[in-house]
Computed example of a mutant assay.
Amino acid sequence: MKPGVALPRAAGPLLLVAAFAAGAALDALPGGQRINLFAPPLLAMLGWNLAVYALLLVAVARHRSLTTPQRRLAAWLHAAAALLACGAVLSMYARGSFLEFRAGWDSTFFDAPALHRFMQWLFGPAAALGGITLPTLDEFAALRFSAGGGGERAARWIHLYAITLAALVILPRTLLAFAAARASEAPAPSAGARPLQVLPYSYQGAEALRAGLRAALERHVGGPVELQLAPSLAQGEEAQAVAAEVLLLPLTATPEAETHGALLAALPAPPALVLLDESGFRRRFAGPDGARRLEERRALWRSWLVSRHLPALFVDLSVP
């Protein structure tokens, strides 16, 4: 998510309604009334959510933090994912109440023992939670459609998918939504202002632009900040770098591995944000091609920072 991204006020509730409706309309049991246990979209839904959890763990491991607008957006997205799964579960039970679904399996590449092991891995926890008996290998092999089996009534498989979705999607996403919403509304420390450590590098005059810097960071985090401005480091002083949430750089400089890369390597932890001040660049290139040069320099920095998994914020600090 890009820094500062947020949903319009009315978009959040509409997103939740749309997610639930999409889940309810989802053909979670495709194939008519004869369904393949390993073909439904529910497997894709489970896989997608597990991938999201993996990405969240990577972000935590890299100490990536979200701004307040990003936390609010994350809360809506987590809630929407939970409601999408809720809609799909209710759809299965609603359709199963008036139609008889027969559950079985077929596969081009896998035999019964392989898919039986996968079934036990996928549904074992749900079976234990719901007190549902899983088929033995012989019983499972008899469910193969291409071997002449007609499958079995799908009730227990619907229960297993419902419990699995509740445990792996609905409950975790709901908890993540509440956590993100709470974090976005939590009061900042120090009399309501959030302390932010800012480290200028190869940057002169940061103190004179303190007002513009505070205004830019308050817009970014969505609330008041207590600016803690460290002395500017010059090139060659990278070893003296101190911990900072925000790294302040002039856009007049181009990214260099020997200097900026060395600085990032010397920092105790990666910064949560790299703020690039455009004021000097705009003064230097104020001619007719200034806008083109500005976009080119932004793109150069953006590409360099993306490759290092760092968010960038481009601001003219001379304009508070």
Rank of each mutant, 00 (worst) to 15 (best):
V5Y: 13
P8E: 02
L14C: 03
F20T: 01
A21D: 06
A22R: 03
A25K: 00
G31W: 07
P41F: 09
G47F: 08
Y53K: 11
A54L: 12
L57M: 10
L57N: 08
S65N: 12
T67W: 04
T68C: 10
Q70G: 09
R71L: 15
A81I: 03
L84M: 05
A85P: 05
A88P: 00
V89M: 07
Y93M: 13
R95T: 07
L99K: 00
G104P: 01
F110N: 11
P113Q: 08
A114G: 00
R117T: 14
Q120A: 14
L122P: 00
A127W: 09
A128P: 00
P135Y: 14
F140A: 02
A142N: 06
F145D: 05
S146M: 08
A147F: 04
E152I: 08
W157N: 07
L168I: 11
L171P: 00
L171I: 08
L171A: 11
P172T: 03
P172M: 06
T174W: 09
L176M: 13
A179D: 15
A188S: 11
G192A: 10
Y201E: 03
S202T: 15
Q204T: 15
R210P: 04
L213E: 02
R214M: 09
E218I: 04
G222L: 09
Q228P: 00
Q228T: 06
A239E: 04
T252V: 15
E258P: 05
H260G: 01
L263A: 03
S279V: 04
P288N: 11
D289E: 14
D289N: 11
R292D: 10
R292Y: 08
A299L: 09
V306K: 15
S307R: 14
A312P: 06
S318C: 10
S318Q: 13
